[in-house]
Write a protein that binds this DNA or RNA. Structure first.
Length: 232
DNA sequence: GTCCAGGGCCGTT
DNA sequence: AACGGCCATGGA
């Protein structure tokens, strides 16, 4: 029997424990009465093909200069915003993307994220994907981690791990997402799916960062007995 | 110095 | 549909 997603989840959870994503700065939002969901949206854009360490530097810059909310992104001088975003790389396009989604949320939802998220998941997803700079992974990260929607996020680590185990799925985004959601729906009750998708994606990132790297560390990998790609 | 990171867009086949 | 070039920074 080939390894299945719920087994991957169990192994990684037992090994690494709960990850409690998405990482946010709670103090900032308590002190300023700002919406932590917006920081998740910002972080999802800033982390596009970028290490989280660099994203943290940009988020620090932002929080040291402006309270993290929609209006402050829109009203901030663009050059200044670019300077703050710079450590996360691709800073010009990322600055534009922050402004685009902020404008969108202001113009269409009056800065009300509860109103934005309190709708059909696929409708929200289509809207996010229509924005320049929001692709599948960014949209789904926002839906899962900010919107608390049962949507499985596929990233480069997920694709790499799927190809190595290997799972019985094609390796394009939709195929992998569909595969995980279908399989995990069989193994977990509906009320647990959001939490499971949340944890599993975070756990996959831990595995991909530390073991299933481009040059994999198969000999010490926690899933080596459930994976065919032994190459150390 | 080289490689890589929690992608997405756009132009070319 | 699939692929390549491009966008940029900082840590390992």
């Amino acid at each position: 029997m080939p390894t299945k997603p719920n087994e991957l989840y169990n192994i990684l959870f037992n090994k690494f424990g709960p990850q409690n994503w998405w990482p946010i700065d709670k103090k900032h939002h308590i002190n300023n009465k700002s919406d932590p969901r917006f920081e998740i949206i910002i972080g999802a854009i800033l982390t596009q093909n970028t290490s989280w360490l660099n994203v943290e530097k940009a988020l620090e810059n932002l929080k040291n200069n402006i309270i993290l909310d929609i209006d402050n992104i829109i009203n901030c001088n663009k050059r200044k915003l670019q300077k703050l975003v710079q450590p996360s790389g691709f800073y010009k396009q990322k600055t534009d993307r922050l402004i685009i989604i902020s404008r969108y949320l202001k113009d269409n939802y009056n800065n009300n994220l509860s109103q934005f998220f309190n709708r059909d998941t696929q409708t929200i997803r289509r809207e996010l994907l229509s924005l320049n700079g929001i692709g599948y992974e960014t949209a789904d990260s926002i839906l899962l981690y900010a919107g608390d929607k049962p949507v499985f996020v596929v990233d480069a680590y997920t694709k790499r791990i799927c190809s190595r185990i290997p799972f019985k799925t094609d390796l394009d985004y939709d195929s992998i997402q569909c595969f995980f959601q279908k399989q995990l729906s069989k193994s977990f009750s509906k009320k647990d799916l959001t939490r499971v998708y949340n944890e599993l994606h975070a756990l996959i990132v831990v595995l991909g960062k530390n073991y299933c790297k481009k040059k994999p560390l198969c000999n010490i990998c926690p899933i080596k007995d459930n994976c065919k790609k032994i190459l150390f």
